[in-house]
Design a protein around this nucleic acid. Structure first.
Lengths: 133, 133
DNA sequence: TCTTGCATTCAAGTATACTTGAAGTGTTAT
DNA sequence: ATAACACTTCAAGTATACTTGAATGCAAGA
């Protein structure tokens, strides 16, 4: 089964230029062409794009994705660097989540605070005061 | 109490150029100068920088911080937009945390997988196979 | 055949958030 | 006084991840 750039674009929500850009920087494997020089994508590209989607969610930079895919091509040689790469990403990601959770509770505090003020303004009563967090 | 750019820089881990940049774009209130034209920061700047720190953790863009601080100056007029701003950030942030948590479990899966391979290579036993997530 | 439309290349531009460089001024220690 | 260092301005550069524009090519339907 093969796919056009249009189909891939729709499938993954990526623009044509973005797909060509990924190919240009080697994030996608080379894409074959049909008689009219148009790109013909295969399952290989679908799988790679699924991996890219997942890594993007995990906030991996394009450079690290490139490393990852390079390592994966010769896993026996590169088991140490690839393991390190995913372990580091695991650490970064869990720290990031922790930071975001703290920030979320700050923001939620602010939501309650400004909502209290709005209610007080509407009811013409005294404003709540800011409780430090 | 007043502070030099050096003290503020150390306190918040921001470079001198970054502090001047924040001032230039109006993220910091205007900074007074001493006889030698050097910046003199006050508690007002410390408080603002603490707020900026918190918003940065919450992934607020500089543009939104600018909006926030502008709204805060006249809260009575701007209670609706400021409430909207923090509510939107709350929503975005919790969605972001959810995405990151899913991504984290993908990455943890990969860590276990590649660690299994490494162990198998060392023990010269069969490689584990990839279990799809 | 002609037009419409999708596809192509390649270079240049965009957004965000800073950083770096050059050149000069002011302050402090010896 | 003089060196060393901190601070100043202003413009230009950087990194990441794309996007946009201009010019051209091919292919299929009216």
């Amino acid at each position: 089964m093969t796919y056009t750039i249009q189909q891939i674009s729709t499938m993954f929500g990526l623009s044509h230029p973005t797909l060509r850009y990924y190919e240009e920087i080697g994030l996608l494997p080379p894409v074959a062409r049909n008689s009219g020089k148009q790109r013909v994508y295969t399952e290989e590209h679908i799988n790679r794009l699924r991996a890219i989607e997942c890594f993007k969610d995990a906030e991996l930079s394009i450079a690290k994705m490139q490393d990852f895919f390079r390592y994966e091509e010769n896993l026996t040689e590169n088991i140490d660097p690839i393991l390190l790469l995913v372990q580091e990403q695991e650490t970064e990601l869990s720290q990031r989540i922790e930071t975001l959770q703290k920030a979320l509770s700050h923001i939620q505090h602010k939501v309650r605070y400004y909502d209290g003020i709005k209610k007080a303004m509407e009811a013409n009563t005294a404003w709540p005061r800011w409780e430090d967090c």
